[in-house]
Design a protein around this nucleic acid. Structure first.
Lengths: 184, 184
DNA sequence: ATCCGTAATATGATATTATTACATATTCGA
DNA sequence: TCGAATATGTAATAATATCATATTACGGAT
């Protein structure tokens, strides 16, 4: 089920002084910098928020960060096993759940899969844009929409605790070269 | 309108259908009228939109309509089997998928479950409010939010095809008699 | 009416995702 | 350093979902 195992092409470096906050998966970007930023954020949490980034968890995060794509728990598990970690489902689920709980990863329910958080720092539920063609997943901050929703729910007496907003569709790369090859 | 009465081998006994009793989605209402309305809408679609509401599909819809809760595919399957329909997973999945495709039911991804559509006529993605206590599911029209989202996605070149918005939280009934037993 | 193509169904098998239970090891703090 | 809490490993199993194939029902054209 895992797509071909090519590591994503390392796109052209670009001016690193201007640190774009975070690019959607489908716009060309320096992914190395992009995943590095996420990792840095995790490190910072280790120092400042008592996060316990154990080896399995760290490796799990790294695996998720390799691509802008959601990985199934069993895909992650296989990768972990390759690296010498346990190869029973709870190994992956525990690490993934921990990362999700700490906001370092997200669970994409529509895909029964997990993706690294690409907008660290943004609290609140993001919107996930899932491309049906290439499978890439982008994360869009959506504080305003979440707020609106909570308000609408409150209007009928419902109090929201967790929110998930997932859109399936077509990413610009796939729309442009329709029929052609898939995205990076 | 109950189909044949053969008693099929019941190899699927699961436990989701047999917990909290049925109850309206937080506001008290005449559920008979409420589900009747949904059924009427389906009938209208049969006449006007060439919907093919075969016995399995119809029965599936009726089962979903019994409560304001989401049922797992296997719960539905067990009920169908009781009524003499096949008891293999595809039987339930096919019927459910069809209903979802036609907008008569929804798939609640957070719960891996299905619920009847309670706002027939409202096209576009609703918001689902899922009570973590009693398991009831309410449907809130959200055309505006969906529009906003599509716009935001369009801003980064992504075109939305399907959208799911699900909120987990606490419904008013459960909040009020907090600690007490679950919704009536 | 009868034939034909399509859609729908039944069924058995299989694949994928997720949890429970329990034993062992590691880390943290008093 | 001990004990408690937290992490990890492993086995077994549950719950969810799809595949592959054969058969049957249905509608339209001859």
């Amino acid at each position: 089920m895992t797509p071909p195992d090519t590591t994503p092409p390392d796109r052209t470096r670009r001016n690193r002084a201007d640190e774009p906050p975070s690019q959607p998966a489908f716009v060309e970007h320096d992914h190395h910098a992009c995943s590095g930023r996420a990792l840095e954020h995790a490190e910072r949490m280790v120092r400042e928020a008592g996060l316990r980034l154990t080896p399995v968890r760290r490796r799990t995060l790294e695996i998720l960060l390799e691509e802008h794509r959601a990985l199934g728990a069993y895909d992650v598990l296989a990768r972990l096993a390759e690296d010498g970690f346990g190869n029973q489902p709870p190994v992956a689920y525990r690490a993934l759940d921990y990362l999700v709980e700490k906001g370092l990863a997200h669970r994409i329910r529509r895909l029964n899969a997990f993706a690294a958080c690409m907008a660290p720092g943004h609290e609140g539920a993001p919107v996930f844009l899932i491309c049906g063609e290439c499978g890439c997943v982008a994360e869009l901050p959506a504080e305003d929409i979440a707020g609106r929703l909570a308000a609408a729910a409150g209007g009928v007496g419902f109090s929201v605790e967790r929110l998930s907003i997932e859109a399936k569709g077509t990413c610009p790369s796939c729309r442009d070269n329709a029929g052609g090859r898939t995205c990076p």
